[in-house]
């Protein structure tokens, strides 16, 4: 892996910019933008070429398949839908409309699978490079630490979006294969067309991806604290689980609105008619706050860090 990494990094030096010192004039803006784009593309390339990333995406894609098959078997003998109202949100509607599998799959993966994979990618972002000894090579290139950190965060955010879309597309495919599609009933009882349903599904996927930006920033901050990629991943996932547990304890209700996971399931409010925006706005605001706090903390830490590896 490290061999591949070093090779991947090689592409950065192909830009052939001289190392920029303090006494040299700044590069023209256009060159910097180009260089920034190159750095981002390289980061994306490195991240998405890893077997680890692909395995995570495969696991995420498998969840809707499992849910779809389970629901199909459960209701295959002609019995009616699961009437209990238990299980993830929207599960009772899947047999009538495959599009609901998208919502169910996102509701099933959002509490754990999705943030866990974000935690792995974000935790690895800086600490993994430091661990593999590639971080200082990255810094030799005239990128600057701030820009490297921004690039890393942008890469993690891209992964958030890709991971969410993988779940949604997999769920839509499985839903279309196993169940009928058509006009759907919102949870408020009104009817919307299939096209509008698809539009809402896309909107929900975007909101789910945005819900993960807080965890991503937290993971990146943890990643700047240590030189061990595994430790950063474990800490991020551990924090995630802890917060999820604390969110269930009724005595802490005064604190709970500030937990990053508290409003995650508000994406379901997009399926109401008219859409109930209150919690959605709170969720997005909270994610922005987490991104700002932990993003700037990561910046402060990363710029102050002694990089020896």
């Amino acid at each position: 892996m490290s061999q591949a990494d070093v090779k991947g990094r090689g592409a950065v030096s192909d830009v052939r910019l001289p190392p920029r010192g303090r006494d040299q004039p700044p590069q023209p803006a256009s060159r910097r933008t180009t260089f920034y784009g190159t750095l981002f593309r390289n980061e994306l390339h490195t991240t998405f070429r890893r077997w680890r990333t692909l395995a995570l995406l495969a696991v995420l894609a498998a969840v809707p398949i499992l849910v779809g098959i389970a629901v199909k078997i459960e209701t295959g003998d002609g019995s009616s839908t699961t009437g209990g109202g238990g299980g993830p949100a929207f599960i009772s509607q899947i047999t009538n409309n495959g599009l609901f599998l998208v919502f169910t799959a996102l509701a099933a993966t959002l509490p754990f699978f999705l943030p866990m994979s974000i935690g792995v990618i974000a935790g690895d972002a800086i600490a993994g490079e430091a661990n593999a000894g590639t971080l200082r090579y990255l810094l030799v290139a005239p990128a600057g630490r701030t820009r490297l950190l921004l690039t890393k965060y942008a890469t993690v955010m891209t992964f958030c979006l890709v991971a969410t879309l993988v779940v949604a597309v997999s769920a839509l495919t499985v839903g279309a294969v196993l169940f009928p599609l058509g006009d759907l009933t919102t949870i408020s009882g009104t009817q919307i067309t299939f096209a509008e349903g698809l539009g809402r599904a896309l909107l929900i996927a975007l909101v789910v991806a945005a819900s993960l930006t807080g965890v991503a920033a937290l993971g990146l901050f943890v990643s700047t604290l240590t030189n061990s990629g595994i430790a950063a991943m474990a800490t991020t996932v551990g924090l995630l689980i802890t917060v999820q547990i604390l969110d269930q304890i009724p005595q802490l209700h005064a604190l709970q609105p500030y937990f990053f996971s508290h409003y995650w399931l508000s994406f379901a409010d997009l399926m109401r008619e008219p859409v109930y925006w209150d919690d959605l706005v709170k969720n997005l605001g909270l994610q922005a706050l987490y991104a700002a706090v932990f993003g700037s903390a990561a910046w402060a830490r990363f710029l102050a860090k002694d990089i020896t590896t």
């Binding site: 706050l289 700002a292 706090v293 700037s296 903390a297 910046w299 402060a300 710029l303 102050a304």
Partner: peptide
């Protein structure tokens, strides 16, 4: 200077 950088996240928390 290193310590001063942590003023940024602290300020964000304070403003929030």
């Amino acid at each position: 200077r290193k310590a001063a950088r942590y003023v940024v996240p602290a300020t964000v928390v304070g403003i929030a």
